[in-house]
Amino acid sequence: MDKEKWEPKIAAFVCNWCTYTGADLAGTSRMKYPANAKMIRVMCSGSIDPVFIIKAFERGADGVLVSGCHPNDCHYNAGNFHARRRWDFFHELLDFIGIEKDRLQFSWISASEGKKFADVIEKVTKDIKALGPFTAYKKMNSEFTAMFPEIPEADKEIVIKEKETV
């Protein structure tokens, strides 16, 4: 694969109330950011299981972003505090299981921070690009693939063409 044309695949787990809405705001404000991150909406950052993150890596994500409401601003009062504690711990374990720590990033983005959302996506994409493709997933995804035999793995080899002038 031509490294220069390689674009990272990023999974973003976001909470419904703050970050997802913040992303909506970025959209309605027509802010621009790279198209690498795809969002998976959950109700609260507190419900994001570390397993989700591992599965995303297994399925070939080069990076994962987790984002929720700011501390003290949680729609459910305290969900993000549990999330924060869980992530801190989990983040430390990533290196241990052989995934670079920086592939997993966290941030607090409120519903009014469209600009911050765009900036975070920009930054995460840049960081993951610098890390290069995550290839170890090929060794780890057998079990997961067996769970969803009918879902074909998204083509990692899709090469985004050079930008054409419109």
Binding site: A26, T28, Y33
Partner: peptide
């Protein structure tokens, strides 16, 4: 909001 309004790169 999450795609057509925020990305310049049409292919992507």
């Amino acid at each position: 909001e999450h795609c057509s309004w925020v990305h310049d790169d049409l292919e992507a």
